[in-house]
């Protein structure tokens, strides 16, 4: 996965909740994790047409306490399903983990970023270095990126994809432990 994205900014305010706002609660209760099922419902609690408007490479900009509530992974899988990036002022602890596990490139601690962008701005984010460029306004900001080990999971496409890749590599290299 390319850790640099350039696309439209979709700004959401503070206090975006996982259940209800990012994804209908019923998918968490059903334990649905299929991206194809979850994608069409992303952010429909706030903007019912959001899944139709958004394109791969676009970036969601969240305010404080993004993805709060009971940390269900469904909303983050929805973001991953559309191939979006995520930049937030702060994110709930469980959702931070879920974003990594779902393979969502994100910047978790971008203080004041909501004031620097508007929905529709063309922005570019390098998630490996933490640089955000707002091409519409001609501004640039530096934020703290994730750790290399976390970016490695995201680049692989999430925890499951990374695990599968590791298992495949072990098979290829015949590194499986020999029977006693």
């Amino acid at each position: 996965m390319n850790l640099t994205m350039r696309g439209r900014c979709w700004k959401f305010g503070d206090n975006v909740g996982i259940d209800g706002d990012m994804m209908p609660l019923e998918f968490a209760l059903k334990r649905e994790t299929n991206p194809a099922v979850l994608g069409p419902y992303l952010m429909t609690g706030i903007d019912p047409d959001f899944p139709k408007k958004v394109k791969p490479g676009d970036i969601i900009v969240g305010g404080k306490r993004f993805a709060q509530g009971n940390p269900h992974i469904q909303g983050l899988i929805g973001i991953s399903a559309h191939g979006l990036g995520l930049v937030v002022e702060s994110i709930q602890r469980g959702s931070y983990r879920n974003a990594i596990n779902a393979g969502v490139p994100f910047l978790p601690n971008c203080q004041g970023v909501s004031a620097q962008v508007e929905t529709g701005d063309e922005i570019e984010v390098n998630f490996a270095t933490g640089v955000l460029i707002n091409h519409t306004r001609g501004t640039q900001f530096q934020y703290q990126p994730l750790a290399a080990s976390q970016l490695e999971i995201i680049t692989a496409g999430g925890w499951r994809a990374q695990l599968e890749a590791r298992v495949t590599a072990m098979r290829v290299n015949d590194l499986r432990p020999s029977p006693p």
Partner: peptide, 8 residues
């Protein structure tokens, strides 16, 4: 949650 939520 459906009472207090954003679209509640």
């Amino acid at each position: 949650m459906p009472i207090l939520g954003r679209s509640g």
